[in-house]
Amino acid sequence: MFQSLAALQSLLVGVVLIWSARVKLFDRHAAELAGNSALGRLLSAGRAVPAYRVLGGAELLLGVLLVLPPAPVAEPPAAAALAAGFVGFVGYLWYARRVAPAASCGCLSARATPVTGRGIAWAGLLLLAGLFGVAAGGTYWLPALAAAPAASTGLLLAEAALLVALSPEFDGYWLLPLRRIRARLTHPLRDGAGVPLLASVQQLQLSTAYRQVAALLTSDVREHWLEESWRMVCYSARYQGRPATAVFAVPAGEVAPDRVRVALVDDSTGATLVAGAGADRDQ
């Protein structure tokens, strides 16, 4: 039973690798994403794009080998080695945040997602899945799935759900809707509890970040949520003729307009156009 469950890890890791390779090789914004990622900031855009493509090719090749029969004994260790590479790469991006704090990972989607502890935990989970797969000893995943369909499906779904939960790229599909539902059910500002949105907006409008991008905004507050000690406030905007979202981070527990930060995110690609205390007024 243990060996059968271990064999399923080849399917899980293979699908994740193919999905990741799809972004790097076939997404029409892949070159732009590579250039805007921490890899682009550290290697230069000219070197980052070829490196991004080579990594995608390696992921695709290994992913196909893991998913399709036969399953040589060498494949799971190779998957674990690549997962270990993911851990090292994401860890390096974490260090690179000091050099390029607004740069993203570019791992699973074209959406810009700066590296956090969740990303490192995601890579660690993928590494554990690869190491668990080594115990299969080359057993192919399809017979293992057929031998215990209920247990196998349950394990795969649980692992996939955990990977999705640790992937900031997928937050828009499940985390934000859950936050909206929780807000509707709990009414967090009822009876005066919490920080009123109006107080955050007033502080936001006093900030340098807001004044520098105010001419680019095209809507009122579109979305907001609390994240640790910050209130995130979103507006629609246009930057260099492109539709974008202005995301402001406002201190929730203190009045400190000088700490307000803003990022302009391209609506079509998810790439961060500008990040920092403000932006140039370029329409």
Rank of each mutant, 00 (worst) to 15 (best):
T186V: 04
L93R: 03
R180N: 09
V255S: 12
T218D: 01
P188N: 11
A31E: 04
A7Q: 02
A30W: 03
L163H: 03
T113E: 13
L25T: 07
P149H: 15
R180K: 11
R184I: 00
G253Y: 11
P243R: 11
G130N: 07
Y52A: 08
D191A: 05
L155F: 08
G56K: 09
Y239Q: 01
S109A: 15
W19Q: 15
A121V: 06
P114Y: 06
V221K: 01
W122S: 10
V247D: 01
L217M: 13
E59F: 04
A100R: 04
P257N: 11
A144P: 01
L204H: 03
A103P: 12
L8I: 05
R281L: 09
L5M: 15
G46M: 05
W141M: 08
R28Y: 10
G192Y: 13
P149W: 15
V67P: 05
A246P: 05
L145R: 14
V134L: 15
A148C: 13
G46D: 09
G192R: 10
L55R: 03
Q240W: 13
A256L: 09
A45S: 13
A244K: 03
R111V: 10
A102G: 01
L198H: 02
V255K: 09
Q283S: 11
L33R: 15
S20F: 04
L216A: 00
S219Q: 09
F89G: 11
A7K: 04
V195W: 14
K24S: 01
R179L: 15
G117I: 09
A215M: 03
S200E: 12
T116Q: 04
L60G: 09
A214S: 14
E228C: 07
E75A: 15
L62P: 07
S44H: 07
P196M: 02
L197S: 06
A30Q: 10
C234T: 00
A103I: 03
E169D: 14
G119K: 00
G130M: 02
T218H: 05
L264M: 06
V164R: 08
A135H: 13
G124D: 05
R184M: 00
R261N: 07
W141Q: 07
L25S: 02
V213H: 08
A81S: 15
C105K: 11
V255Q: 13
A102Q: 08
L155R: 12
V164C: 11
E32T: 06
V265I: 10
V90Y: 00
E75G: 12
L264W: 14
V134P: 09
G91T: 01
S104P: 06
E59A: 05
F132S: 11
Y173L: 10
